[in-house]
Design a protein around this nucleic acid. Structure first.
Lengths: 199, 199, 199, 199
DNA sequence: AATGAATGAGCCTTCATTCAT
DNA sequence: GATGAATGAAGGCTCATTCAT
């Protein structure tokens, strides 16, 4: 990606390379804008300008505004899915308090890696994608609960996953860089520990 | 417009009365629409039609779309404030578990009484009003915590209020009429009890 | 429409009146433009400007470009239908040569009264309306043929109506004001007479 | 432009050959597309793809969309001209009824050989080319009329050519493959015979 | 000379807001 | 004051055309 002899792989590679960079730039710009102003308030023209892309090129990569949001959401689901899957793999060895911490860690990491898509989870007009994110997470959470809290009464897993999901959304929304960031994350840790232990 | 000698004093009262009805009708209609479709997707024309108001009149009462949302948010803050103030009044007699239940009850009542404004709490472009709602609630929650959990370490009240606020938002968002509505509300009760007791 | 006492019928009437004038102005402008440049090449903005209407108002009356064309086509069908119906009423008394002349007269009159819609009969993307115009005319023509040429063999009415339709389209397209206008119309008269007598 | 030593001569011939093939492929593809969807609705990208040409190459051969249409129209004029010239050569031996049939035959043959350009004759924005087609045909038709109908009064040749042209356009537009194709062509034959004999 | 990614003017349409009646 | 027709800035998107590779 960097140290290549002067005129190395030309032709196809550069083009694709560029494409990838473009797409990345667009998604980054779009993510920031969505986060700042909300889905509806962001203009395709704005996204284009903000990512140094011509409007026509933007539409070459993403044939509609919704597509941009979907891609963002997709990335988010992927990362989130990966994080939760990793957790699941070691779930049997986790005490409830450990699960609480681990969940906060997963969300925190996502935020750090620009898990910007959170701005879109509440956006209207993206029903399909949003639903997918939601269901993916709920399924993962139910799985984790089954593994970590085997004594949980049958009917509890579903509402518990729902409540957990909402709390985790809060974790993901903790603003980065604010003075109370750390304190708030710790607070969420406590909340989740209490909930998973006693709930 | 009727039979008024000079030009004033006469029709004033009835008109003012009507004005109140109109405003109420508008806010009700706007609330429902915002809840259904989201702030951006709702049209001023739609609000006017749906509330039986002429678009021109709508603009007499609310000089901009944002104003309508602000008013809705304002109503929300008022009701919420009233509910929390009532709670505060009897805070000294509340055990943590009681506070948990009481908070859920307050939110639930708001929802039942069309505390529709929740749809707007995440709407962008309403920063000012949103911030006010937020600060109002945070202050109330801090007060409640001080009263109910006197042993709370100094630095905890703020983040705890923040976390609480997020959870309560979740309570307010429980969809009405869904089969799992009851179960989810109970779940939030458990969560809050655990948090307030152990957190 | 003109000589009305100073402040006569106000209120509703003026509004509707204006609406009618607007619609008329729009259709007139659109007709001219379509005729000049063809359906696709004409811009809604152009129609608006050319008819002294704001783009938003244009869309109040005609919610899409296609609607404008349809209205034009509709007017055309109406007028054409009326003309042919009138012909039909006296068809039994018509000799073939009379029918030829009468058909040319009908088309000529349409042209004079801005039967502009001809420009649209070949436009793509207006299939539905175009088809209607076509079928209306074909049915009328078949009726006329049955009445005026009772000896026509069964299978001939349909293709004859088709051929007639094409010729009449030509009549409707004779440019107005050209030096050869009269001569060409006479030529079409001859053609139709010959066809209806001998064909 | 032909035998240049240095860098040409080599791949030139094959390439030129290829050029011809490319141009033919492009025109064929463009013709079909124009016929199917109309001039405006067809995309340059579409033409390129449909003819297996890169968009850049397409623009090397035809520097604009209009150019493509012009070329198509040109081909059409050529073929039509050839057909009418052939007719002209044996005009002295033709009776009016023969001319009628021969004209229909010429048009029919054009259609069969993808005389697709008919779709363009009414396309706007191609004024220049269209005019040329028109004038070419009118001149040919006048010549034929002079030869076949020597008794025609002086002033008649022009309008008669005009009317004839319109009818022939109709012949060229008879849809291929429709059940009534044959019947309609026969009908046009009758029409032309009647016109040329009695008109 | 070939390729196709990039460009941006311009299109259709919507909707918050104004203002003549 | 009410009313709703009128306004026009702005948005999402397309496509003819160019130009770096």
């Amino acid at each position: 990606m960097t140290a290549s002899p002067p005129e190395a792989a030309r032709g196809a590679a550069p083009k694709r390379q560029r494409g990838h960079e473009r797409v990345a730039a667009i998604l980054e710009a779009a993510g920031s804008l969505f986060l700042d102003k909300g889905y509806d308030a962001v203009t395709m023209t704005e996204i284009a300008a903000s990512s140094g892309t011509a409007i026509g090129s933007l539409y070459r990569f993403f044939p509609s505004k919704e597509t941009v949001a979907d891609a963002l959401l997709g990335t988010y689901v992927e990362r989130l899915g990966a994080g939760l899957a990793a957790l699941r793999a070691r779930a049997d060895a986790l005490a409830p308090a450990d699960l609480a911490d681990a969940l906060v860690d997963v969300m925190q990491e996502l935020r750090a890696r620009r898990g910007v898509a959170l701005a879109l989870v509440d956006a209207r007009g993206l029903e399909a994608s949003r639903h997918q994110v939601r269901e993916t997470m709920l399924a993962s959470l139910r799985g984790l609960l089954d593994a970590v809290l085997p004594a949980l009464p049958p009917g509890r897993a579903d509402p518990m996953a729902l409540a957990l999901l909402h709390v985790l959304k809060g974790v993901g929304q903790v603003p980065q860089g604010e003075p109370y960031e750390r304190a708030l994350l710790d607070e969420y840790r406590r909340l989740l520990r209490a909930y998973l232990l006693m709930g």
